[in-house]
Design a protein around this nucleic acid. Sequence first.
DNA 1: TTTTGAGTTGTTCGA
DNA 2: GTCGAACAACTCAAA
Length: 427
Amino acid sequence: MWFRRDLRLRDNPALAAALGDGDVLPLFVLDPAFEAAGAARQSLLHDCLHALHDATDGALVVRRGDPADEVPALADEIDAASVYVAKDFGPYGRRRDEQVADALRGGGRRLRGVGSPYAVEPGNVLKDDGDPYSVFTPFSRKWRESGWDDPIEAPRRPDWIAAPSDGLPERPDVGFEIPSSTEQNVIARWRRFRDDGLDDYGTRRDFPAVDGTSRLSPYLKYGVVHPRQLLAESDAGSDSHRTFQSELAWRDFYADVLHRRPRTAWENLDRRFDRIELDTDAAAHEKFERWCTGRTGFPIVDAGMRQLVGSGWMHNRVRMIVASFLVKDLHLPWWWGARFFLRHLLDGDLASNNHGWQWAAGTGTDAAPYFRVFNPTAQGERWDPDGHYVARWIPELGTSAYPEPMVDHKVEREEALARYQAVKTRS
DNA sequence: TTTTGAGTTGTTCGA
DNA sequence: GTCGAACAACTCAAA
């Protein structure tokens, strides 16, 4: 069983299939490509691997290197008939898995994909005419109709096959705490949220100073918990629960979009926007630097960026605000912001992150209308009326140490509208 | 087959 | 102060 983004024993169909097939060796390959993830997510991965190591009574084998070399090599060592995985639908993962499958086939072995990190596998939600959706709401309706499997039980203490391990990776120091990554604690966290927070999720989730969200995204990213369990244990009869379920539908939707159109990871989905005027000169890089370090002079933006860098997470409402600011007040490329998010977010996920950015930039599927420009001051007053969020992340707020606003929002809004308009009229 | 209405997250302006 | 309209263009499903 080759674990990738499914670092759990319970409710793991690929693992169940492997165990149904014979004795199993649990493997994780530390792919050098993962070094791009940034220290925060590497630390989280470290914690998740530690938890999995403990959960397998120390049987987890870690190998360092290119999976196309390491997986077939280990399969040879133990003469494995098959390598089981949860299917990966990202651009890199698909290419990697094809290479691994090819290499395994050379030795007469098979790569068997069972299940995926999603409630409904990418490619499986289709319109009645068989085409994929490009709008969220009809997608989510069909996604709900398609239903999802019930969670399956964890295996009972299998006799794991042993093999030499390169050992767990170093844990980069990130300077902040990451909550426990054991399956047991993550499930406990979910159930606490379900019992205490889910009924009010619809009304509380948008206020960044309020602890109104599940905070499960990092664990969904690494598959410590599968969305199917969250769906099975929430109630579609409650509006608030349905709102939460819809967030899981967004995750599936963007995975589906990226699966169908891999190039949209870093390119505009809507090609018309390839010609929009963006600022990329030295002054633009200086502006970007102020955005990254939370010194724009707009408190809600700066609080968000400091929360991101200082904790590995940012409240979703604030993600939209800082994204709108980067794209529409600073006129910078959305992928600059997306790359920075991916480097710092514990839950950083290519599909959700980059398509979320495309939504903010108006270049993606189901995009925000171009004239929807967030006013960072009005958003702060509306969603952080008491200023508790900005005060928490900006200690110098209200003193002379806090910078003046780096731009005039009214002016930059007009500028953004003009640039978007120019693309529209030329197309 | 064609038409119609609705669609995650907003802001501004003028009545 | 409140409220509705305008700010486009396109997808999708139901009528």
